[in-house]
C-alpha cells in the first residue's frame, strides 16, 4: 500500500491516506492516480478550479517527501507551475503528479494561499 500524508498550512488536521495505486482512478478529476485523484477519492478536499485539467494552479502542493516517487512533470505542468504563487523546487500540481509506486511514502503540504484568483469584493 502507498501512503500519502497531507499537511494543511491552514491548520486543518493532517490526513493520512493508504491506498493501492493500481486501483486508480478513485474519482473523476485529474490524472488517474494523481495526488488530486487520491485525495478527492478518499474524501479529502483539494481545490481544483479547472477540473483537474492543468489549466490553473489551485491544486498546487509542495512535496516534502517522496518527490522522486511521483511521475515526472511534463512541460505543460512546468509552464503552469512557473506562475504559481509560492513556488518551491518541489512544487507540483496535484492534478498532474501521479503516485505510481506501490510502496511510495509521500508527504505533501497544501499551501494556505493561492493568488491565482483575483479577489473580487462586493461594493454592495
Amino acid at each position: 500500500m502507498a501512503r500519502l500524508r497531507v499537511i494543511f498550512e491552514s491548520g486543518e488536521p493532517e490526513r493520512v491516506i493508504e491506498f493501492s495505486p493500481s486501483q486508480a482512478p478513485f474519482q473523476h478529476d485529474g490524472r488517474p492516480g494523481s495526488i488530486l485523484d487520491v485525495l478527492l477519492g478518499h474524501g479529502v478536499p483539494l481545490e481544483h478550479a479547472c477540473g483537474g485539467n492543468c489549466a490553473c494552479t489551485t491544486c498546487h502542493v509542495i512535496v516534502k517527501q517522496g518527490f522522486d516517487k511521483l511521475s515526472e512533470a511534463e512541460e505543460r505542468e512546468e509552464d503552469m507551475l512557473d506562475r504559481a504563487p509560492g513556488l518551491t523546487p518541489t512544487s507540483r500540481l496535484g492534478c498532474q503528479a501521479v503516485i505510481e509506486d506501490d510502496d511510495a511514502e509521500i508527504v505533501i503540504v497544501v499551501p494556505r494561499y493561492t493568488i491565482n484568483q483575483q479577489v473580487a469584493d462586493s461594493r454592495s
Binding site: C50, A55, M80, N116, Q117, Q118
Partner: peptide, 8 residues
C-alpha cells in the same frame, strides 16, 4: 461559480 481563474 467561483473565479476568475487561469493564466492564459
Amino acid at each position: 461559480f467561483t473565479g476568475p481563474f487561469g493564466l492564459f
